[in-house]
């Protein structure tokens, strides 16, 4: 087997044959990403309505369904309606600590058979397997959103404690709830924010997967016919809550 030293040594030998033969510009990176991220946040806080409108347009363009409500307390009603229209009953949701509110009781009042995800890992493999089967059998997955990108209509979800990866993946309907603090304008801004997130030690509870979700799962592999919901959800719903509800 080739070792790291042999492998990199081979690369260096080949690199040495062409010293400086190719013009290159150094990559542009923010020197202090945390400060730039803070500036972006401040600026966005002032012009969030335009950003939201752009997000709505792009999100709908990629096949998402957008809703706007005044407060987090109105969310269960919207989710209940989505569920009833689709004859969906079983719901899995991020843990209240990750979602910022325990929505399972009011969702039960809406007639949904809801379950919150555990706040961390499950050590017992059988319990883990049983939970996976319940997530796979659920009709609806309810999650929060870490970033909502206006340029592309995308939702960024970071995995972690209480926010399992499959909640937004296995159920056929994904419903995501967010407020103005998640809104960003562009991919370039996402780059800066990701730099800032990674600048120090990862905070406790942060997981190992960041997913950028741009509309429902799709394929065009058979005669280029667009078909939704091939492996992931066939519908993605985003509910914007006007009043931030966390802290």
């Amino acid at each position: 087997m080739t070792t790291r030293a042999e492998f990199l040594g081979e690369i260096r030998r080949e690199m040495a044959k062409t010293p400086g033969a190719f013009p290159a510009t150094p990559a542009l990176r923010p020197a202090r990403p945390a400060e730039v991220a803070e500036t972006i946040r401040r600026e966005l806080a002032e012009r969030w309505p335009e950003t939201l409108e752009r997000f709505r347009q792009e999100f709908e363009r990629v096949g998402g369904v957008f809703y706007r409500v005044g407060s987090i307390d109105a969310v269960p009603g919207v989710v209940g309606r989505i569920a009833r229209e689709r004859e969906a009953r079983r719901l899995v949701a991020w843990h209240p600590s990750a979602l910022g509110r325990d929505l399972v009781p009011p969702l039960r009042s809406e007639g949904l058979d809801g379950e919150a995800m555990p706040p961390g890992a499950l050590d017992d493999p059988r319990a883990r397997q049983a939970l996976r089967e319940r997530i796979a059998a659920a009709d609806l997955g309810l999650t929060g959103v870490d970033l909502a990108i206006a340029e592309t209509g995308s939702l960024v979800l970071v995995s972690g404690a209480g926010r399992p990866r499959s909640t937004s993946l296995l159920p056929p309907y994904h419903v995501a709830v967010f407020d103005r603090t998640a809104l960003v304008e562009s991919l370039a801004q996402v780059g800066v924010l990701l730099e800032a997130w990674h600048a120090g030690e990862a905070p406790a509870g942060r997981g190992a997967a960041i997913n950028v979700i741009t509309g429902p799962s799709r394929t065009a592999d058979i005669e280029l016919t667009l078909t939704r919901g091939v492996h992931g959800p066939k519908e993605v719903h985003a509910i914007f809550v006007e009043a931030p509800w966390r802290g």
Partner: peptide, 22 residues
């Protein structure tokens, strides 16, 4: 011709201690 593909998945090593999945 999409602005982004539907899923951009960024993974950073195996499942972390507090994570249910991965």
């Amino acid at each position: 011709g999409q602005k982004l593909s539907v899923y951009t998945t960024m993974v950073q090593g195996p499942r972390r201690a507090d994570e249910l999945e991965g």
